[in-house]
Nucleic acid binder design. Structure first.
Lengths: 148, 148
DNA sequence: CAGTATCCCCTTGGATACTG
DNA sequence: CAGTATCCAAGGGGATACTG
């Protein structure tokens, strides 16, 4: 239990590789800028984070409330999701040391803030949903013969 | 080579689970809307896709050009990344059947389009980069004692 | 209630070798 | 050149059991 400090430390795939860590910007993107964009996308793009942020955007909720609302998430995953969001400063964790314990989660201003651009992307995704869907159908239809 | 048709079919974690596949919207989000947002985020949030889209936003490029520019990506991963982007309709693949073969990749209008909201998110990520960084430092400093 | 601790599976990404 | 074919390691997500 002591050696896994990396659990919610790094989103993993979000690491921008060494290729352009060296001075040269790729398409006008410097490595660190590129990295911070990746960080946000990786955090918000994982399976549950975005949903959790949405849930908390109206009111703060306690652990069990979140779990119940999300339905099919496991405790472990909800915990790591919340820790990740907490680490990056999107949520705060309020502990009430009672018995049984009570823990509430609340969006920070950063958490509320990120909803702006994320909602814009969401709106785009919704408006272009059919295009993506059609592209997929077309692609899959063309490639299914190769696959079988 | 026939049974792995799922390689670039699904982003994996992007699947919105059964919990709210049933009628009830979560926080005003219906399941399919939620799914399409997840799809976009998962696609654009993987390790290389966003970078590839950025590279192609100025000019079309051939496979080897992309590989060289990205530096540390493997052929396999570049291929699957491009296939994924092609499947979702963000890029098109132009094959010139010469020897040796030549394949060019170009952004579609959908591909150019997604850069809008993505750039907005990128700008946000850049402007709030320090906040995230500070939050992480603070969090890690508080939790390092527990971890060791 | 709000977590840990384990164990397990699957997917992603990478390294290497081979081919039309 | 532009891919496939294999193999491998690491991480994410899930199921279950236990605990302060």
């Amino acid at each position: 239990m002591h050696e896994q400090e990396g659990t919610f430390m790094k989103p993993g795939h979000s690491k921008v590789p060494a290729g352009h860590t060296s001075g040269a910007p790729v398409c006008g993107l410097t490595a660190d800028v590129c990295q911070s964009v990746s960080d946000v996308l990786a955090r918000v793009g994982d399976k549950w984070s975005l949903l959790v942020i949405y849930m908390l955007s109206n009111q703060s909720m306690r652990f069990s409330e979140l779990k119940r609302s999300l339905g099919s998430i496991s405790q472990k995953v909800l915990t790591t999701t919340l820790r990740g969001l907490e680490r990056d400063g999107y949520v705060v964790r309020h502990v009430t040391p009672s018995i049984p314990p009570r823990v509430d989660y609340e969006l920070t201003s950063l958490g509320h803030d990120v909803l702006g651009p994320v909602k814009a992307l969401a709106m785009w995704a919704i408006s272009r949903r059919k295009d993506v869907e059609n592209a997929r159908c077309k692609f899959d239809k063309l490639n299914i013969r190769d696959a079988i």
